[in-house]
Design a protein around this nucleic acid. Structure first.
Length: 449
DNA sequence: ATGAAGGCACTGGCCTATTC
DNA sequence: GAATAGGCCAGTGCCTTCAT
């Protein structure tokens, strides 16, 4: 039987041809999905289920591809007016829609649900592919809509679906892509016919060679030749400019890092979709240059809005004077701004922190200190292992922020056995501390230049 | 996924230098 | 003096980056 081209595969082509190739020709090389990716998928499923409540009384269609299509046809024949997750198969293409609603005459309106707060560039193409697939399969589509999150919605009690979601007509936007779909389909089939080894020309189709995880996985698999070149270190720096930038700092220095939790559906009252909820911090305080830092940790132990306790703990850690240092400080600043709104009694304190915040990342972003081994990235995960190789995430059970975030609901689940809770608590503290301690060490190194 | 900021290319207004 | 070309700067809009 002919291999079907799914909407997912089609969209992966547009993201990066190497992704589609690897998933169809060398699936064993596909890098495992990150915690962030998994969270995005989970958000998608949750929002999709909620969106069905906007169109009550529909029939849930089981199965994908040919099975799903057969079930879709059966439901239509029985006179169903609203379908959840119906599939269509035609001309070697397959797509699964989120919601179909019987419209005027014989046509159906298609509602695509996205766990996003704004219409993205790829959404109209996505809808156009589905529409083509359903129509070729004999299910005519009238208007097409995008259902998405309303980022002004603030939860108050039970989720109000009509307030959380909003819908817009994308019929016109999708129609603009109709003519180009067949050409993309041809490209997809071409990419899927590439061999197990890629030619340089094929590799160059990668849409973002510097960051693409699929290109990296392929190069890793074909040989270690690239490795030495990537990790060769040859730092360059402007010590005068660095000294000038660091001259702004006022002791005692407070190094701060938050871990946050948040998703499409706000878990607590008072939060918007995707609003970040700080549940953990680590602070290192350096009273004088070259001294030994004092450390402070906070980690909320119940799954409830932790803002008040967190701010109380923060007041213990951060005094009224001295700089506050963070990496990509804009993130910590926005957390503080959110905390200030929820804990107005301490708003003044939180905003004073923001006024004396110093972003250590800017030294690297502005290339006052640069090293080819940073791989053109100024993230802490790129800089720290090069500048302080003995500090490594490799020995930790938690190695990235996304995992730390996902760990919080697990930690606070009352059903978690005590021994596991103790171990996870330790791991989460260790991870957060390493980020902060890395900043301490990097600053001390810059000071010595 | 968000959201703010930085980077970068481009635009338009203004000035100066050059040429007739 | 008028017309044109080029340089400069501020403003813009789009894209990328970073944290979780």
């Amino acid at each position: 039987m002919e291999k079907l081209l799914s909407k997912t595969a089609f969209m992966h082509l547009l993201e990066c041809p190497l992704r589609l190739w690897m998933e169809s020709v060398r699936p064993e090389l596909v890098p495992p999905s990150s915690a962030i990716d998994r969270q995005a998928m989970e958000n998608g499923e949750q929002v999709d289920v909620l969106a069905q409540r906007l169109f009550p009384g529909g029939v849930k269609i089981e199965g994908f591809n040919r099975v799903g299509f057969a079930n879709t046809q059966k439901a239509i024949a029985k006179g169903a007016k609203i379908l959840y997750q119906p599939s269509a198969v035609a001309d070697g293409l397959t797509a699964r829609a989120d919601i179909l609603v019987r419209g005027q005459g014989k046509t159906w309106d298609l509602h695509e649900v996205k766990a996003t707060t704004s219409v993205k560039r790829e959404h109209p193409v996505d809808v156009a592919f589905q529409k083509m697939c359903f129509e070729r399969a004999g299910i005519p589509i009238g208007n097409t809509f995008l259902v998405r999150l309303n980022n002004r919605y603030v939860r108050d009690g039970e989720i109000d679906v009509a307030g959380l979601l909003k819908e817009e007509d994308v019929t016109q936007d999708a129609a603009r892509f109709e003519d180009r779909i067949p050409e993309f389909i041809e490209q997809a089939r071409e990419v899927m016919s590439w061999g197990k080894q890629l030619t340089p020309a094929q590799l160059r189709t990668c849409s973002n060679p510097r960051k693409c995880a699929f290109l990296a996985a392929y190069l890793e698999a074909v040989g270690a030749g690239k490795r030495a070149e990537i990790f060769e270190s040859d730092p360059s720096f402007d010590s005068e400019a660095i000294a000038q930038a660091l001259g702004e700092l006022v002791y005692p220095l407070h190094f701060l890092d938050y871990e946050t939790f948040g998703g499409a559906i706000p878990p607590f009252n008072g939060f918007r979709p995707y609003e970040q909820i700080p549940f953990q911090f680590a602070v290192y305080v350096l009273d004088e240059p070259g001294g030994t830092p004092r450390t402070f940790d906070f980690l909320a132990d119940t799954f409830a809005d932790p803002s008040v306790e967190l701010v109380d703990a923060l007041r213990e850690a951060i005094g009224p004077d001295g700089s506050v240092i963070a990496w990509n400080a804009i993130f910590e600043k926005s957390c503080n701004e959110g905390l200030a709104k929820r804990v107005p009694a301490h708003a003044k304190f939180l905003r004073s922190i923001n006024k004396r915040m110093f972003d250590l990342m800017l030294i690297f972003k502005r290339k006052l200190y640069d090293d080819p081994a940073f791989n053109k990235s100024a993230s802490l995960k790129a800089v720290m292992p090069v500048m302080e190789p003995d500090l490594s995430y490799k020995n930790l059970n938690i190695q990235e922020g996304g995992t730390a975030s996902a760990s919080w609901p697990i930690l606070t689940d009352p059903k978690l056995p005590k021994a596991k809770r103790t171990a996870l608590h330790r791991d989460m503290i260790d991870y957060c501390r390493l980020d902060v301690y890395g900043m301490v060490r990097i600053l001390q190194k810059l000071d010595r230049l």
